[in-house]
Amino acid sequence: MGRLTTVAGVRIRATTEDDWQRVRELRLEMLRDTPHAYLETLESALGHDEPEWRARARRGRSATGTVLVAVDGGGRWVGTMGGWLPGPSTAPLLVGVYVAPSHRGPGAGVADALLDGIEAWAAGHGPVLRLMVHEDNQRAQAFYARRGFRLTGNSGPYPLDPRQREVEMARELPPAAGRAEP
């Protein structure tokens, strides 16, 4: 995905290996802000070395996924979302969603712009985009519902605390050029 100008001059683009330090900074911010939203602890993330962060930054243009970031007019990274193909016959999965508090809400448009980019990528890989969200993350669930995602009835234990649950939501995607309908 190329650059896309959105509300208030925020640009959306895919990450590259050269972004590894910014990827690290944003990931640590995400984990501090909403620790139950991710499958990693802050302590674990702080232990990663440079090669790990470079590998994560390369995911922006991976054969099995993408990672998009939102960059404001001052160069600050204010959001991110990823898309991942868990397997050859598995629907695309939305992962790693974060928008800085200063850029949250429908009026800001950052989450919508990021999701537009992920949906465009995902439409080339399958007819449905899925996600798993912590059962207590009502803010995220409300955003996804506003964007047409619905609870599927599937759930599973939250990997960092199996006493808690993650629920699955999914949305049908419009056909993309080059993708045949089933």
Rank of each mutant, 00 (worst) to 15 (best):
L28Q: 03
G96R: 12
H134S: 00
L68T: 02
R146K: 10
D116R: 13
V128D: 08
W53Y: 04
Y38P: 02
A8Q: 13
G124M: 07
L31W: 09
Q164W: 06
L39Y: 04
A14F: 02
L151P: 06
T80S: 15
R171W: 03
T152W: 08
V133Q: 00
Y158A: 07
W121Q: 14
G9L: 14
T66C: 14
E119K: 15
I118C: 15
Y98Q: 09
E50V: 15
D33R: 03
E50R: 13
E135R: 03
E166F: 15
A63W: 04
R58G: 03
L115T: 09
H103S: 13
S155L: 04
G83F: 05
G65R: 02
E181C: 09
A123E: 08
R58F: 09
G65V: 03
P88A: 06
R147S: 05
L26Q: 05
A122V: 11
H36E: 08
G83H: 06
S102Q: 14
A14G: 11
Q138H: 14
V67I: 05
Y158P: 13
P159Y: 09
H125S: 13
G9I: 08
R58Y: 05
M81A: 11
Q164R: 14
E43F: 00
L93S: 08
R165M: 11
A45H: 00
H36G: 01
M81L: 12
